[in-house]
Design a protein around this nucleic acid. Structure first.
Lengths: 350, 350
DNA sequence: CTGAAAGCGCTTACAG
DNA sequence: CTGAAAGCGCTTACAG
């Protein structure tokens, strides 16, 4: 039925070793031989059996990506970027969803799937700093995010504190002195996006000589539009004065916009709003949502390359490395910038 | 380093065959033996090598999902659903992005990845009816969507015409007599979501004795918020009277909402708007977007189960089957319904 | 530069 | 019910 290297070798009149050399672009094959082998491959429609190759070489050419949920835009866009980069490196990506569940996160790095992927990119949301010892696994693992630092594995993270500080600095530069923060969390013993971004908020205010009003520091039930909307509604209901909002992610920022509009507050005239993540939706919101671009493509590229390095590593293992990616403040309508989506010079055909 | 079945067999004092029987839940193993084998597996941290199993059994336990782009919400949510269902069937999912590119779509079913996945779920957007012969591939393939019908493979599709007709019927029931459609395309020789949904629009109007005004039938440069917004802006600029809009997907519907608001039209008072797809964002838009729920979970479940059936198929191959899933009209604020996101009875901790 | 052969770790007839 | 052995399709030392 399906043909093997032996069939190709027979048709081409060479040994399987030579076929293997051609397939894997090894040197020392005469051009004429290479041509004959290629023709035989074409003729038979031969495709290497990846299981056999994997068994022999100890590699499958597949990496795992463990994220909470693809229906969260941030992770869909991250997965999109990771799949692109991995594809360009000749790797397939098995996407696993943990649902932000601790057990599922543990399972994804338990090794149950170990002999199936060559390594895993892992974005935890349930595991935290106290679980750092669980990351000492016997296979290549690259950690994403800011739940766990100083672990035994390579780690790609963003400048959460600095970026949050810059976002609040942007609101300050617009003259906003009463900026609320939505999505805060102040667990002393946890390091998370929430904690780091809140730290950036505080340091920006402190640098401007402003005392943060505790009433303006709000948690959200979940980091979604719904969570942001509800937190904002409560804040408005309580009657606090405010002229700016820093939503710790764009999803909540979209909910904040809605709550403000429902309450008849004008954005950005009455209240300027900035989010974090730069998901596509923010660009199309009314008004469009200013945000922090955390450099998702750079994160994906860096993470895949670190993982590939680890997979290719022979005996000598280099020490764990932490890479911090850059960021950019994206000014849109919600802080007085212009919408990016303008009419095209040439209208599309109607 | 990593242990094998032989190690387990040695520790447990049984043959590898028995270990295999235990791992694969085969009968005819005494409880006591089973316990000993399990203990040995535990002790060694043994995990089956999936490459070896794949080589021997001819299966990898991985299926492929080929979609345009995960950053499009519809496909992120579809992938989310497929990964959940596949996981419950013990299968991993390699996600491949075609970018809606013809060559990439062909590559995804060319068999280059064949011996790597047990089968593929394929959602084409570039290939069309004329490419139907290309689907006659020597591995399990399940087609999603409405680009190609009557092909040689199993096919899962939704009731596009009926659902679109019901959406427009909903607008008619609100008394809207001048409903525009956004995202139309009228290629006589192509069957696509656009063509089918447009057909539903026409049949609903016809059933109500209304002549469709060609000026209200609009294409969009792309099926995105931007495309919807631009198409709506042009429609408004041209000064046509209208009181309803049927956006052929939610992404365009979100852009339509924005264009209407920019133009000072009230939704739904002046113009009622309904989309198609039921992506999460529509629920959080201001106003929330009415839509057609095409039953994404049902699509995912059906597609995975058909693929599993094909993979497990021995000699006798049953004929290709087409499954059509159900739909539901979701009435939200943009057509006068209530927002679904209400305040929680119990506020989250602040 | 090329060929014959071993072996990666499983599963599965085949004997017993 | 259990064991010994073949073989899935590759890659890679090892000879030549």
């Amino acid at each position: 039925m399906t043909s093997t290297m032996h069939d190709v070798a027979r048709i081409a009149g060479v040994s399987v070793k030579t076929v293997s050399n051609v397939i894997n672009d090894h040197p020392h094959v005469r051009d004429e031989t290479r041509r004959r082998v290629r023709a035989a491959i074409e003729e038979l429609g031969y495709r290497p059996n990846l299981s056999a190759r994997g068994l022999r070489s100890g590699k499958t050419g597949i990496i795992g990506l463990a994220v909470p949920e693809l229906r969260e835009n941030y992770f869909a866009e991250l997965a999109d970027a990771v799949i692109r980069v991995a594809g360009s490196r000749g790797l397939g990506v098995v996407v696993e969803q943990t649902g932000g569940d601790r057990d599922a996160e543990l399972r994804s790095i338990s090794g149950a799937r170990l002999r199936f992927t060559d390594g895993i990119l892992f974005s935890p949301v349930a595991l935290g700093q106290r679980d750092v010892h669980l990351l000492d696994v016997p296979f290549p693992l690259v950690l994403l995010g800011e739940r766990i630092f100083d672990g035994p594995t390579d780690h790609v993270t963003m400048r959460n504190v600095d970026a949050a500080s810059a976002a609040v600095g942007h609101l300050l530069s617009l003259g906003r002195r009463r900026t609320a923060v939505i999505g805060a969390r102040d667990d002393a013993d946890e390091v998370s996006s929430a904690v780091l971004r809140l730290r950036g908020y505080r340091s920006a205010l402190a640098a401007a000589g402003i005392t943060a009003d505790p009433a303006l520091v709000r948690s959200a039930s979940e980091w979604t539009p719904r969570g942001g909307m509800q937190a904002m509604q409560r804040l408005l209901d309580e009657g606090h004065e405010l002229d700016g909002v820093f939503a710790l992610n764009d999803a909540m920022g979209l909910g904040v916009l809605r709550a403000l509009q429902d309450a008849g507050r004008r954005v950005p005239e009455d209240v300027a709003v900035i989010g974090f993540d730069d998901v596509d939706e923010g660009r199309y919101a009314v008004p469009s949502l200013s945000t922090v671009d955390p450099g998702r493509d750079e994160i994906a590229r860096t993470a895949v390359d670190l993982l590939v390095e680890r997979i290719d590593e022979k005996g000598t293992r280099r020490p764990a490395r932490t890479v911090t990616t850059g960021f950019r403040i994206v000014v849109r309508e919600s802080t007085g910038g212009r919408a990016e989506s303008t009419r095209p010079a040439v209208p599309a055909t109607a």
